[in-house]
Nucleic acid binder design. Structure first.
Lengths: 141, 141
DNA sequence: AAGATACTTGACTATTTTAGTCAGGTTTAT
DNA sequence: ATAAACCTGACTAAAATAGTCAAGTATCTT
């Protein structure tokens, strides 16, 4: 059970962005350097974030990215959703008609996995980008 | 972020075992049939569970496996631990001297990943095999 | 107008992990 | 004896991951 770097990088990059974008657009190059993430990879990630309207892009010299919403309105769940970082505990889900594994009943542990998914997703739904930045500033003082 | 089948199968198989082992040892063949998990794969999994003393094996005809502890004393965390299903959110952890990415400070999101890991692990620490079986029986009635 | 900076897109690929399979054992109840 | 069931280690196909690479386009500054 592990978080992929795509999801992790997306959050790291946005946390970085949230700290600096009130001054001026932040270039991926800067984020790349500060966070140690490959520029090419960041471009992939931000392309998705832009399509989901989490960030806005500004082209040209002095360009970069800015947040498209207030930091408190961007939850981790929105970020993970944008980069296709899904919480998945089990396959037996979609075939609503039948139970799991094509059998007529739910598998013994079905409810457990549902609970687990909810448990994790709740964490992601509650936590906002603002929380992240705040925690960080507080620790610095 | 997903659960691997190894961890999932281990829990499913043990839940199955917990329901039947008060009568007689349960053969992997039976579990394989009931849960739809390959026998060969189950053998790999139970080898690990036995080494961690979660189950006990009984060889020969009429043999099989039984739980080695009471169902309420077997937590999901013990099961996942036995089959190497780890919760991992981030790499930057072990190099205790330095911060993340070899830098002198913690990465912006370090605490977040720690929180997330704890959040998930708490779920695994609380949930026992007994809980699972109970919930299931209750649902059936 | 030129050049530099920075975003944009899509294809490509090496590595790692996963999810098993396969083959050959050993033990023990009947 | 023999069949059921455990035991072990090696092997592998397929998928996912974590990027790289190449070839653009847009816009600001001078």
């Amino acid at each position: 059970m592990k978080l992929t770097s795509k999801g992790r990088y997306a959050v790291m990059a946005l946390a970085d962005l949230a700290r600096f974008d009130n001054i001026s657009p932040v270039s991926l190059r800067d984020i790349s350097l500060r966070q140690g993430i490959s520029l090419d990879y960041l471009e992939q990630i931000f392309s998705k974030l832009r399509k989901k309207e989490i960030v806005q892009s500004i082209r040209g010299t002095q360009g970069g990215y800015v947040l498209n919403k207030k930091a408190k309105d961007i939850k981790l769940t929105n970020i993970f959703d944008a980069v296709d970082e899904k919480v998945k505990t089990v396959q037996c889900k979609k075939e609503s008609k039948k139970g799991c594994n094509g059998k007529s009943t739910k598998c013994l542990t079905h409810n457990l996995w549902d609970e687990l998914e909810n448990h994790i997703n709740n964490f992601f739904k509650e936590k906002s980008l603002e929380d992240l930045v705040k925690e960080n500033i507080e620790r610095r003082i």
